[in-house]
Every structure is written in C-alpha cells, then in structure tokens.
Amino acid sequence: MKPCLDIRRLSAVLPNGQRVLRSVSLSVQPGEVRALVGESGAGKTMIGKAVLGVLPKSVRIVEGEMLIEGDDLGRLDAKARRTLIGARTALIPQDPLTALNPSRRIGAQMTDRLVRILGWSGERADKRIRQLLDEVQIRDPERVLKSYPHELSGGMRQRVLIAAAFAAEPRLIVADEPTTALDVTVQKQILRLIAQLQRDHGTAILFVTHDLGVVAKISQKVSVLYAGKMVEEAETAQLFAAPQHPYTQALIAATPRYTDPYTSLKPVDESVLAGLKAEIAAADKDWRPGHG
C-alpha cells in the first residue's frame, strides 16, 4: 500500500545557513495516526508546515522529497502543488481563535474551503457542514453557524475546526498541537472526537504534540524529534514499553505522572543532551545538500 504521506531525507535551512530540519524521513500509512513529538525548536511544526506548503519564506528546503499518496510534491509546479495539497490535506490548528476570522460568522468560514477551493455549490457545502457538526456532537448547529468565534468556548471552537477539517474528506490531516490550549477535561473530549472521526473516515493524521501523554493515547506510531533530527521512531506501544534512545528515555522519565510522583519528573541528564548535540554537530560538519 502506498503511504499517505512519505517524507524522505527532508532538510531545510534558514538564510544564515543554519539547519532546521536534518534529513528527516517519515511516513504515514493510510488511516494511521502518527505522532510527531519533541520539545520547542524540535522542528515538529516545521514538518507539518512543509507538508501543507506553508513554510515561512525564510525557511528553504534544500534536499529531500515529500510524496502525498505517491505524488511527488517537488515535481509539481506551484499551482498544481497547491491544488493537490488543498484537495488531499487539511489542518487542525493549535489555537482556534487565531485560526478563525473574528469578524465573520462560523458558518461562512466553515464552507469557505468547500466552496472556494473545491468548487462545491453553497447548498452542498452547507449540508455537508451540518452533517459534520453532528459528528462532532454539536447539538445546536443553527446557533453555532450563526455565531462569531468569540461567542463560542474554546472547546466549541476546536470542534468547529475539527468538523471543517474532516468536511472535504482529506486523506491526511495535520493536527498541530490541537489540544494544547484546552483544559484537561475538554482536551479529553476533543481527543476522543478526533480519534472517533479519524476511525470513521479512515483519515491519516500527522499529530504534532509536545505531550507524551497525548502521544500514548492517540497515536499508533510515533517519531521523536530533537533540533530537527529524528531521534527515534517506533510503534507507540513499543516506544513506551522499551524506548531505545537515551533522549526518549529521558523525556519519558521527565514527564510527570500523578500515579508515580517520585519516579517521574526526573530532570533530563545534561549528558544526554550533550550527547545529542555532539551527534548533530558531527553530522552537520560532513553534511552537504544532496549527500547527507
């Protein structure tokens, strides 16, 4: 089976030549949730943006390939690339308030993508959106569709964006820290919804998060990143049962667990980070685009 997303040896640099992605390879199979976990600066959001074709101008991809369902994005011109990305992918963003236009009603914003990008009729888009609002368990769609973003709670806004993301049946959804801004009880509801819709629609998800707890609950596979480098990848169950890389082990041990207050929350040993940095520096020294 062709992977839904296939990233091969992707490297990106800033204008000053600093590498922000270091020969990252990962694939997401159809219908699978792949978590991308790392601390700030790990490059996890960068990878999501690269997939969606919305990297900041200052970041330049210098090597590697990205394939969506076997189609190499690098071989398409800009317009064809945008069309393909628009048709097959969607985003669930971190902060629903900044992702929504404050001065337009929810209903209009939800149908935008369907009508303007995919060319659906207004009626068809409207019907589809109501169907999805039902799937994300919004019981009063009339009120929500007429609301402005500030009139909804954080959890409601995130439900709306999840519905919008699934509406056009994308093959792949990039979920970029979709529950980080939410309270724990709301987070659980939202994770439950994402898992439910993901299963029902058979959508693949690239789930970007910094929270190993969320990784454990939502994903089947996981990639651990540090400073733009893939540190470890594994089946999620395997990663928690027997983490291989010292950095992964340290991250898991540093994550607080109320069930285990005194063995969790272990500060990461400096030597682990020093080892990683040395590894990266050595790789960078010999690296030339195309020969990494």
């Binding site: 724990v184 190993l212 999620t236 994550t255």
Partner: peptide
C-alpha cells in the same frame, strides 16, 4: 482526564 504517558486502549 489526565493523559498519562502510558498505553491504555480504553482511555479514549
């Protein structure tokens, strides 16, 4: 509601 960093298939 706290997602602990351990596998629990029933959690969701």
């Amino acid at each position: 509601a706290i997602p602990l960093p351990e596998i629990d298939a029933d959690w969701l």
